[in-house]
Design a binder for these strands. Structure first.
Length: 676
RNA sequence: GGCGAUGUAGCUCAGUCGGCAGAGCAGGUGAAUCAUAAUCACUCGGUCGGGGGUUCGAAUCCCUCCAUCGCCA
């Protein structure tokens, strides 16, 4: 392979502004962000680009509908994406909009150049056109006069257009991929493209008549036409670098080729059309095209018509940046489809984040604070735990390698093996036992030092994934986090010469009940509204929680009423109908063993067998008071196991100042009456 | 219809060169009390989709059938 640029040039697709950002957009962008941050910590120069695709017929139509000029319309839509990226902690270096002059200029130049080379020609085009999808179909595709994709009527269009001679480059592309099989991943996607390329490529129609699609980049030598949106959009990957250099071409020479992170739905455009466009411009193909999978929701494809589109903004409101980043990258394999479920997200937050990691910091910090309040914990002569150091030396580099290979879930899994090793070390070395023996004070200090070092390294390697959390851990350890980038080379070694003066800390993560509501008594400042800036590691945050220890009494009422306020998106009646509600009569009720909050109920909802429902209402109701009560039950909620009991439904209850108050009906009702 | 992939524990998946079936979660038992009731150890659990073949030996290689998914048409 030719020597390549030292730069790590990384892109996401540019997102079509006519859509509302959904979890898939967030997924792509977060993955790219993790990769960008990782390479920065590897001290590579990184250029991370994302942006928006703002031309095309649909945008123009939407603008019309809102009686706005297209430009004004896209200007108004833009913040949906831009703000979301800020909230997700995305560290992009630039943000391209296809309406920016730099991009428009670049596209015009490309068109002129391709024309000079003879790669463009005018031709007649006749076919069926689907207006909403902005694409042509052949006679064979169309079924009963309907678009095969969206099932809406197509119209017959006959027009002259400008075509790009893709077919010219087909053989070249095949041989390039044969010698670079690693440039499309996962491997199954590579096979797919090779299969696609076995058939002859049709030339690409790259123009649209202005009379039909007035909103696009004008074609310089054909005044009645604008550029086809896909052609326009792909070019952002080069028009932006072009605009950056001091001389034309300099920025691109420095950055190219790029690593493209995309969803599997746009593989063909990126792996076939795009390299051919590049070849026509005498540029090498991308370094890597990685097509990730889709998020399904409870096993179903996410789509507007199904009404199951997951809104990342709402999840952010509820759970915050880092838990969402973690869940999306930990839950499935990057490259495979993954199923989204709220229970899954909550489980990740509670187990991996709060229990394994959050509690680890909490217990280690508490001991360091208690046993070495003034003097601190300093680097020992002999390692406190050789096993722990060994684990750090093997697991952490392995995690880094996996991140570089875009195996994010494996990377996080490996990091959590290290977290488990830290927890194990705490248990095995039992510092609270050492603390009772003054003669073993040196040993105690050495063990704590190794644990603190382990936590510091965890934060370092976790930083690309969980930038806010990483910053909080480092801050708790008293490591100045002011430097925005901590390099692995400089900070990645075990055994920093340092005296740790650590104070007991508040919670890193708040646990959630099955509805996502915060659990526990951490009502105060520990859960601020997450409004992080791009460099989350640098946000200083007064460690106020260290002073006020939560009282040991377990009787405090969870103060949750204030926490539920996410600005709710509007839903259709169809959405509402998806929730099946019915009246139920409580037949039996008993506490769930070992649980303070849960009651196990047997509820008659008019079915042959009463449902077992686990409800978090023990704080407000005694079991014996519930029997015979009429309640409102969600009957089509996916079952969930709480404290070992499988719940087959959910009771509706108001969240009040004092706890919860169950909903009931105003009048006689039989078990299983419908509710709407 | 063509091409490609997948099928392994209740769930999500790993399994290199053919060499005694693995992890996490869930379930069970115990330990511990530093910690956010958080942790740690042990443990239950599998006809490796079905059938056939090659081999001393198959989750792994070959054939075939079934199921699911993807791409193309």
């Amino acid at each position: 392979m030719a020597e390549r640029s030292p730069w790590f040039y990384l892109t996401t697709p540019i997102y079509y502004v006519n859509d509302v950002p959904h979890i898939g957009h967030a997924y792509t962008t977060i993955a790219a962000d993790v990769l960008a941050r990782t390479h920065r910590q590897m001290e590579e120069p990184v250029f991370f680009l994302t942006g928006t695709d703002e031309h095309g017929q649909k945008v123009w139509q939407s603008a019309e509908k809102h009686s706005l000029s297209p430009q004004l319309y896209v200007d108004r839509i833009l913040p949906r994406f831009r703000d979301l990226w800020v909230r997700l902690g995305i560290s992009n270096d630039d943000f391209v909009r296809t309406t920016q002059p730099r991009h428009v200029k670049g596209v015009s130049e490309v068109l002129a150049r391709l024309r000079e080379k003879g790669d463009l020609y005018e031709g007649a085009y006749e076919g069926w056109y689907c207006l909403p999808d902005e694409r042509f179909w052949t006679d064979k595709d169309v079924v009963d006069g309907l678009c095969p994709e969206c099932r809406r009527p197509v119209e017959r269009i006959s027009e002259t257009n400008i075509f790009f001679r893709m077919s010219r480059y087909q053989e070249w592309l095949i041989s390039w991929y044969e010698s670079h099989p690693e440039s499309i991943r996962p491997e199954s996607r590579y096979n797919e493209i090779m299969g696609f390329l076995r058939k002859p490529l049709a030339d690409l129609c790259i123009s649209r008549p202005k009379s039909r699609v007035p909103w696009g980049i004008p074609i310089p030598f054909a005044p009645d036409y604008v550029t086809y949106v896909w052609f326009d959009a792909l070019l952002n990957y080069v028009t932006v670098p072009w605009s950056l250099g001091a001389t034309p071409g300099e920025g691109l020479d420095r950055l190219w080729p790029a690593v493209h992170i995309i969803g599997k739905d746009i593989l063909t455009t990126h792996a076939v059309y795009w390299p051919i466009i590049l070849a026509a411009l005498d540029l090498p193909p991308p370094r890597l095209i990685f097509a990730h999978g889709w998020w399904t929701v409870d096993g179903e494809k996410m789509s507007k018509s199904r009404g199951n589109v997951v809104d990342p903004g709402a999840l952010l409101d509820l759970f915050g940046t880092d838990p969402l980043r973690f869940y999306l990258l930990r839950e499935g394999q990057f490259g495979h489809d993954v199923d989204f479920s709220l229970i899954g997200l909550i489980n990740r937050i509670n187990r991996d984040l709060a229990n394994d990691l959050g509690n680890l910091l909490s217990r280690v910090a508490a001991m360091a604070d208690r046993y070495f309040p003034g003097e601190g914990v300093s680097r020992p002569e002999t390692p406190g735990s050789p096993e722990l150091r060994e684990a750090a030396n093997t697991l952490l580099p392995e995690a880094l390698a996996r991140t570089q290979a875009l195996e994010f879930h494996r990377a996080l899994q490996t990091l959590w093996e290290f977290v488990a090793e830290l927890n194990r070390t705490v248990d095995l070395r039992a510092p609270w036992v050492l603390a009772k023996d003054p003669e073993r004070r040196g040993e105690l200090s050495a063990v704590l030092y190794d644990l603190l070092e382990g936590l510091r390294l965890t934060a370092l390697y976790l930083a690309p994934f969980l930038p806010e959390t990483s910053g909080k851990i480092l801050e708790a350890l008293g490591v100045p986090a002011g430097i925005s980038i901590l390099s692995y080379r400089e900070h990645g070694v075990f055994g920093l010469e340092k005296i740790y003066r650590v104070q007991e800390t508040g919670s890193l993560f708040i646990k959630r009940d099955t509805l996502g509501n915060p659990l526990g008594e951490e009502g105060e400042g520990s859960r601020k509204k997450t409004r992080s800036d791009k460099t989350a590691t640098a946000t200083p945050e007064p460690a106020a929680s260290g002073k006020e220890r939560p009282s040991e009494t377990e009787q405090e009422k969870p103060n949750k009423a204030s926490e539920v306020s996410a600005p709710a998106p509007l839903i259709d009646y169809a959405d509402f109908q998806k929730v099946r509600l019915a009246t139920g009569i409580v037949r039996e009720a008993e506490p769930v063993p070992k649980s303070k909050k849960l009651l196990k109920l047997s509820v008659d909802v008019g079915e042959p067998v009463p449902r077992t429902v686990v409800a978090g209402i023990a704080g407000s109701y005694r079991p014996e008071d519930l029997v015979g009560k009429t309640v409102v039950v969600v009957t089509n909620l996916a079952p969930a196991t709480l404290m070992g009991v499988t719940s087959q439904g959910m009771l509706l209850a108001a969240t009040t100042q004092d706890g919860v108050a169950l909903l009931t009906v105003d009048g006689p009702a039989a078990p299983g009456n419908g509710i709407k």
